[in-house]
């Protein structure tokens, strides 16, 4: 039996180790000054110490966390509200939800392009305000995209994230046993109470999954920040890219050190979040 399981898992475990684990190992090794393109060096932690002295890095980390949190939380909230709204429609009409697939299909690069088209200072919204006479020059339109606020990136992530959350949450909701709700209502629960004690607890697992996936994706993603081009302070991924491609080889370990920290953060975050969600779930049930 045991041997069967290992044999069955082998087609996946082999490439997993050869590509994923090996890639990670090399990132870690290079962050410690080993196996560099210039030749094998000696193991050192000086690049990690350099990270703690880097002022700009803290700003990048803050921006990455900020963008990741608000885009993921906004997507889950928007996706849940849309899923609930679609759920109340008659099943035939519910099919209009299919247009949200457009957001899933458009690549991140294209979504960022859309944000540029709409919200840059010479974009469509600015044009509309000009035609309405509310502004007289492009400079009067608030500079949303290049101030380092991350707002443009959050909007782009939302356009991708809302349909994703809608898909995960809708899958649970549209297969929901309506009799549970009818029973709650018959027993005298109001609409709010029914939502809070019957519907929401069943949606929570899907909402947690959506949040964790979207948060970590935005945290480490490259495409959208690269198109929207904020570099002071850039997202962590942009910082790594700059060090990796635009500075000399001797700085490469620094990029790898940032990546290692990002990996540890993502893995620990996923683990702790799951624990936390399970704990909250158990706690709710006790009540």
């Amino acid at each position: 039996m045991r041997r069967n399981v290992i044999l069955g898992l082998a087609p996946l475990l082999l490439p997993y180790c050869a590509l994923f684990c090996a890639g990670l190992t090399l990132t870690l090794a290079q962050s410690m000054g080993l196996f560099l393109p210039l030749g094998p060096g000696e193991a050192t932690l000086e690049y990690y110490q350099a990270l703690t002295r880097d002022q700009g890095l803290g700003l990048s980390l803050r921006l990455s966390l900020f963008v990741a949190f608000f885009s993921a939380a906004g997507s889950v909230l928007g996706g849940t509200v849309l899923a609930l709204a679609l759920w109340r429609m008659p099943p035939g009409l519910r099919r209009v939800g299919v247009v949200s697939k457009i957001g899933l299909i458009l690549p991140h690069v294209a979504v960022a392009f859309l944000v540029l088209l709409m919200l840059s200072q010479t974009g469509l919204v600015s044009s509309a305000l000009f035609q309405l006479g509310l502004i007289s020059t492009p400079e009067e339109f608030p500079n949303i995209l290049h101030t380092g606020s991350g707002l443009g990136m959050i909007l782009a992530f939302l356009l991708k994230g809302v349909p994703f959350a809608l898909l995960l949450i809708g899958a649970v909701l549209f297969g929901f046993d309506i009799r549970l709700i009818q029973t709650a209502r018959m027993l005298g629960a109001g609409p709010l109470r029914t939502f809070w004690s019957v519907t929401l607890p069943r949606l929570l697992p899907a909402m947690h999954s959506a949040f964790i996936i979207l948060f970590l994706y935005a945290f480490g993603s490259f495409d959208i920040p690269f198109v929207l081009g904020e570099s002071h302070p850039g997202m962590l991924s942009i910082r790594v890219f700059d060090i990796f491609f635009h500075r000399d080889l001797s700085q490469r370990p620094q990029a790898m050190a940032i990546l290692t920290v990002m990996f540890v953060f993502a893995a620990v975050f996923a683990m702790l979040y799951n624990r936390f969600a399970a704990y909250m779930d158990a706690w709710r049930r006790k009540l």
């Binding site: 996946l12 890639g23 990132t27 393109p37 991924s237 990029a255 990002m262």
Partner: peptide, 19 residues
């Protein structure tokens, strides 16, 4: 086994690129 889709792709792909 879920990790490769969760953690930033950059983290392992930059090392893998070297290999």
């Amino acid at each position: 086994l879920l990790l490769p889709a969760l953690v930033p792709a950059m983290t392992f792909s930059m090392g893998l690129h070297f290999i």
